[in-house]
Design a protein around this nucleic acid. Structure first.
Lengths: 234, 234
DNA sequence: CGGAATATTGATTATCATCAATGACGGTGG
DNA sequence: CCACCGTCATTGATGATAATCAATATTCCG
C-alpha cells in the first residue's frame, strides 16, 4: 500500500511541469496533485516541532530520527522511521516532534488540507493511515513501559531484541550512541556500561560499536521482557 | 462528533431486539448495528492486553486507567480516559494495553471487523478516528519525553500543569498515589517527596492527598516545561 | 470507633548521571 | 602509505537522584 502512494507521488512529480488543467480527477490524479517529492541531506531537519502541520510525509528512502527537545537541550528520541513509514501523523495543529535525516533521505509530502476529498474518494487510504497511527501508538506505549519501568540493562536488551531480523543473531546498530541514549532515556556512558554488562554475562558479543551478536537469545529475551528486575542486576 | 456516535450506540441498543432484517443501511443503521453499550463496575477491566482486538470502545461515562504490565508485576500507566475518549485504537491484532474502570464507567463497543463499510459510508468517521489517534500519539510522545528525560519534580509539575482547567488554580487529583506513580514512572514515596518539595518551594499548597492549589504558577510552569533541570533541584 | 488501606516521613542502598581521562576509529593531507 | 587530528566510544571515580525497606500518620468505611 505504501508503494502505491509512493508511486503516485512520483507520477505527481513528473506531471509537475504539465499544464494545471485537470480533465477529471480520479484517485491517482488527486494523490499526484497533492504529492511532492523531496531529497533530504544527512542531518537536515524536514519536520520541526511546533511548526504548523501542513503535510503528511511518507519516507521512501533513508533513515530518520524523530524527537522532542526541551528548552535546555535535553532530547528524547520518540522513534526512528524508514522507507514506508509515515511522519506527521502525530500532529493536530502543529507537529509534535522534529524529524531529522540520519543519512540521505527521500520523502513524499502530501498536503493535509487536501486530504479530506482523497479520504472520501479512496477509503482504503483512511484505513492505511489509521493502521499506521495504530502501529505508532502500540510502539509508543511499549516504549513508555520501557522508559518508565525498566532499568538500563533491560532497556538495552529490549532494544536489541527489537532489532533482530528473522532468526539472525547478528544485530546491526546503524546509529550513534547518543541517539541510542536519547531513545532509551539514558546517557552514552550508561549505554556503554550496559553493553559491557550484557557482554560480561555472556549474552552478547561486541564486534564493534555498530555490530554485535546475540549469544544467549533466551536470557536476553527474558531480560528484555522484564521477567524479573533482579535478573538484570550486576 | 463523539456525541453522535454515542447516540447511535444507544439507538443500536434499543434496536437490539428488533428483527435482523435491514431494509436499507444508512450510516445510522450501520453504526447502530455494530454498537453495544455496557456498564463497567469500578475496578473491572474491560480491555485486556494481548486479547484479540475485536472492538473499538468509546467511553461515555466515568474514568479509565490504561496500562501495560510486565510479568513481574511492574506497571506503566500509559494514560487515562474519560467521556468522549476512544480506546482500542492502539491495537493491531491484539490490544496493546489493559483498560480498567477507576469508578463506575459506561462504554460503547463497536465491532472492528464491521468498521470498513462504515468508514466508507461515513468518511467523517475516518477523520474522527484519525484525529483521536493523532491526539493520543501527541500525548504519548510528550509523555515519552517526561518519562525519559525529566526528574521527579519536573514530572509532577508537568502532571499538575496538565490538570489545570481554565485559569483555576485549584487542582483536583482524583487518583491514588500508586496510579500517579505508575503514570510518572516513579514510586509512591518519591511522589510524596516531590509534592513535599514543591510545597517547601512555595509552588503549591497541599490541602489533602486529592487536592492542591497552585501558588507560583509561573515557577511551576517553568519547572514543568523543563527550562533547566537545576531549577528542579532540592 | 476500629481496622484496613493509603499516604507520608525517615534511613539506607542501588542505579544512573556527571565529570574526567583514555582509547578506538575514520578521514585527510603530507 | 602512514601520521595526525577530530569525533566518537569506553572506562574510571565520584556524586545525585530515586528506589527500597521500615515505621508512622492519615483517611476511608463499615
Amino acid at each position: 500500500m505504501q508503494q502505491i502512494l509512493a508511486q503516485r507521488a512520483v507520477v505527481g512529480k513528473s506531471d509537475h511541469a504539465l499544464p494545471a488543467m485537470p480533465k477529471r480527477l480520479d484517485e491517482v490524479d488527486i494523490l499526484a496533485q497533492i504529492a511532492k517529492v523531496a531529497d533530504i541531506i544527512p542531518g537536515q531537519c524536514f519536520i520541526r516541532e511546533g511548526d504548523p502541520a501542513a503535510h503528511y510525509v511518507l519516507v521512501t528512502a533513508g533513515s530518520v530520527r524523530v524527537f522532542k527537545a526541551l528548552p535546555d537541550g535535553r532530547r528524547a528520541i520518540t522513534g526512528f522511521a524508514g522507507p514506508g513509514d509515515f511522519l506527521g501523523l502525530a500532529a493536530l495543529d502543529c507537529y509534535a516532534t522534529t524529524a531529522e535525516a540520519i543519512n540521505a533521505v527521500q520523502i513524499v509530502r502530501y498536503k493535509r488540507l487536501d486530504m479530506a476529498p482523497v479520504l472520501a474518494a479512496f477509503p482504503a487510504l483512511a484505513t492505511l493511515l489509521l493502521v499506521a497511527a495504530a502501529s505508532e501508538l502500540v510502539a509508543a506505549q511499549a516504549h513508555m513501559m520501557l522508559l518508565g519501568r525498566m532499568n538500563a540493562r533491560e532497556k538495552l536488551a529490549a532494544f536489541l531484541m527489537g532489532r533482530v531480523v528473522a532468526r539472525n543473531r547478528d544485530v546491526a546498530l546503524p546509529l550513534a550512541r547518543i541517539d541510542l541514549a536519547d531513545y532509551l532515556g539514558l546517557t552514552v556512558e550508561t549505554i556503554s556500561r550496559a553493553f559491557g554488562a550484557l557482554k560480561r554475562d555472556g549474552m552478547i558479543v561486541i564486534h564493534n560499536a555498530a555490530s554485535i551478536t546475540i549469544c544467549d537469545y533466551l536470557a536476553l529475551k527474558a531480560l528484555a521482557s522484564g521477567a524479573d528486575p533482579r535478573l538484570a542486576r550486576h
